[in-house]
Write a protein that binds this DNA or RNA. Structure first.
Lengths: 180, 180
DNA sequence: TAACCATACGGAGCAGTGTTCCGTTTAGCA
DNA sequence: TGCTAAACGGAACACTGCTCCGTATGGTTA
């Protein structure tokens, strides 16, 4: 029950290669890049990619897991560092927005059509953090955390390199509205 | 320059048939329904559908043009009927949100990846109306109309039949934030 | 060291999109 | 009644995500 059976050496090597290739391709062509491109970049067959990451979404999760984790951990930290809980909330939301806007098309991922593992993972990890911040700021009565997360995610769609659409400002308005 | 050459009778008939079929399919299966389904429902070949509507998006535009028009016309009307411009703005936004949320997946359309005719049409028609309302409410300095429209559109994505996500409330918060 | 086999690999192939192409049919006119 | 521009139908293409299965190989065991 405790340890998973160790993988073969080549498998472990390929997993890392794939993660690196995916990260590179995502930066170059966005998170919507075809799976084939990633396999090609990694010099690996389609079968390999799908054995390691059963779904496109799983690969994306794996690539960004570290950063999601960072964002999640920043929540309590901000709360502890500041004596104005709503300032902490605002800062945390900023962090989240930066994360989404920075990655080519990542925001689109927050609108999980079904229950992609991706959608699920992001939300599972970040919603509780959001809840904690909302509670501290005494705003929990005004939105459900999940709702706020999805809303912010939605607002970030299509924001990258778009001079006509400043997601940060709109999110700022949304948060301002929360305190009205 | 004045009149377009009149179409053949069968062409006119087919255009109407297609519009009706598309409307029906959109209601049943959402705006993402495959083009093939619409052609089948209309009892028409793929060639026909694409001659009338060069692109998926053009078909959607055609189906909803009437309602977009209604929404656009409602703007000045609301402004004239009320002496509180920001109330008129709020009401108009409500109308717009209803329109988007009501139609299976229509909101997704506001995030034109490229310059779809769809995206273009919606925005072309509605942005000026939005601008007028913002100006009347003296809020024009706080957001660009295009930005607000896109933001509202984004917030509406995935709102249909979703008890965990109330787009109307979030849009309400956004508008509230606008006045803070 | 050699043989064995569970584990992992590669990539052709499937199913589902939007869109194009072109041979066939037909409406409307002379 | 013919003729032709206009319109039609649907097979085929390009591009997705994903699956399947024959082949190769790491690592264990005799």
């Amino acid at each position: 029950m405790s340890g998973t059976k160790p993988k073969r050496a080549d498998a472990r090597r390929n997993e890392k290669t794939l993660l690196d290739a995916a990260a590179a391709v995502f930066v170059a062509s966005g998170v919507d890049a075809p799976v084939r491109d990633i396999a090609a970049k990694a010099g690996v067959g389609m079968g390999t990619i799908y054995r390691h990451f059963p779904t496109r979404a799983d690969l994306i999760v794996a690539v960004y897991r570290h950063q999601v984790e960072e964002c999640a951990e920043a929540g309590p930290a901000l709360l502890a560092a500041s004596d104005a809980p709503h300032a902490a909330l605002a800062q945390w939301i900023d962090l989240f927005v930066d994360f989404l806007v920075t990655k080519h098309g990542l925001a689109g991922v927050m609108q999980g059509d079904g229950f992609d593992s991706l959608h699920a993972y992001f939300l599972e990890r970040l919603v509780p953090v959001c809840a904690e911040l909302l509670e501290a700021a005494e705003l929990i009565a005004r939105v459900r955390p999940l709702e706020l997360m999805r809303g912010v995610g939605n607002l970030c769609v299509g924001a990258e390199d778009n001079p006509d659409y400043d997601a940060r400002r709109l999110v700022g308005l949304l948060i301002a509205g929360l305190r009205a």
